[in-house]
Computed example of a mutant assay.
Amino acid sequence: MGIVSTMIRRLNLEYTRKNRKENVDNNTEDDDKAIIWPWKEGILFNILFLYRKAYNLSLFEAACKLDIQEETLRLYEHGEKKISLPDIEKILRGYGIKIDGLLPELISYNGGKTYLPLKKPFHFVINGMKFDIEGVKFYQRVADEWYYDWHKWPMTRYDSTGKPLLNYMPDELTVDEYINTDELAYIKDDLENYYEKDLTGLKLPPNYKYLLEKPEKKEGVKYSGYRYTVDNIELTNDYQVKAYVLPQGRTVAFDLTEYVFSDSPWYNMLQDKEYFFKGNFQYIGEQMPENQCIVWPDGQYIRFIELYMDKYKYRYFAYKFGTAGNDGYDVWTSYYWDN
């Protein structure tokens, strides 16, 4: 929803902003108040405040635990000060987390070597506690609402310690970074046109093709629906998956080489056999047949509905209804079929 604030500014519309002084001063000690996040350029959103709540720490106790000055920690929590690299190291060590656990906008598509602030997360689990920053007002913006601002282009890439690296434009992103990011991140200052990356000639993983194609329901075609349930899977040395599928009660083999040997650096990680065999069956989002997937530790996924659609091209299971976010993935193909 960062586009809302952008449009307000561009159109010179008036709005009422809560007085920061009355909402921020000492509010990390008061569960009834929320942090007003200022979105200062160059400061990434952090969830230090949520870690304090999850571990039931006062500001003073957290400062002692992390060996950071109390006032400095307060400024970090409120987005008023950029977290220094030495303090990032202390925080990661103190809470036993990685950089994207502290700065949740950061996402990596190369095994955690580098990160870009391309993600807009709303749900967190810390120390066994679940937080929904949209539903419960831990952080606020204008008129008691929470939404993310997109960072400006060129966008800074970071290493695993939070150190800033080079700046990138959208056409310099990898195919994985570009395709898996909400298109609102690419809107230009005129609010009409978008930055684009030329994907011509690239061999994309099949799920990316579904993400990119326009929603379409073919005239005169009855979409039978996808109602299969995968009971268990076996990954093989020749990059196939054998799935025992119900209600047929039989094993179906699917070739995964179009994913493994595509022009996606992220999916190329599956070429490593040791890593490939770490894939496991799970639902992404709700436990519905269309959300049955093979998922790898770094987040690569392959959906069984799309494996079926690719294997049986002349059987119309479902059509693309659109794209939306789904359980940690900001871009996810939504399917629909006839009743």
Rank of each mutant, 00 (worst) to 15 (best):
L202H: 10
L235P: 06
V142K: 09
W332H: 03
E29W: 10
V142R: 09
L202V: 01
Y51C: 04
E306T: 12
P38F: 05
K119W: 11
P215I: 07
L66A: 02
G94Q: 04
D171Q: 09
D190V: 08
W37A: 11
L11Q: 06
R20K: 15
P265T: 08
K242P: 01
W332F: 05
E234P: 00
R74P: 00
N180I: 06
S84R: 01
E22Q: 15
D238R: 14
L48V: 00
N167W: 04
N339W: 10
V331R: 15
I43V: 03
I284G: 08
R93W: 12
P117W: 11
N12K: 14
R9L: 06
Y208I: 00
S84C: 02
T72V: 00
V125T: 10
S334N: 07
A243G: 01
V136H: 09
C293K: 02
T114L: 14
E22T: 14
Y308C: 07
V245P: 11
F138M: 07
T72G: 00
S334V: 05
A318N: 01
A318F: 05
E177Q: 15
Y335F: 06
P206S: 08
P206K: 09
Y275R: 11
I302F: 03
D159I: 11
D100C: 14
V24R: 13
D272W: 14
Q248S: 14
A34L: 01
K113H: 15
F304N: 05
W337N: 01
F304Q: 02
L235C: 09
N167T: 10
A253Y: 09
R9D: 11
K53W: 01
V136N: 12
G299I: 02
N180R: 15
T251M: 13
E306M: 15
K320H: 11
W37T: 03
K119G: 05
A62M: 13
K242I: 05
T200W: 04
K53I: 08
T174H: 10
A62N: 06
Y314M: 07
K119E: 06
L307K: 02
D100E: 14
K130S: 07
K130G: 01
P215K: 09
Y312C: 06
I179Q: 08
Y301C: 05
M155P: 13
D198L: 10
L256W: 06
W37S: 11
R315T: 09
R74S: 04
W266C: 13
Y259C: 02
I179N: 13
D327P: 09
Y76A: 03
T200F: 13
D144P: 14
W337A: 04
T16E: 02
P297S: 03
N291R: 06
S264N: 06
I107A: 14
Y55T: 01
F321C: 02
E213N: 06
P265A: 14
D190Q: 07
T156P: 04
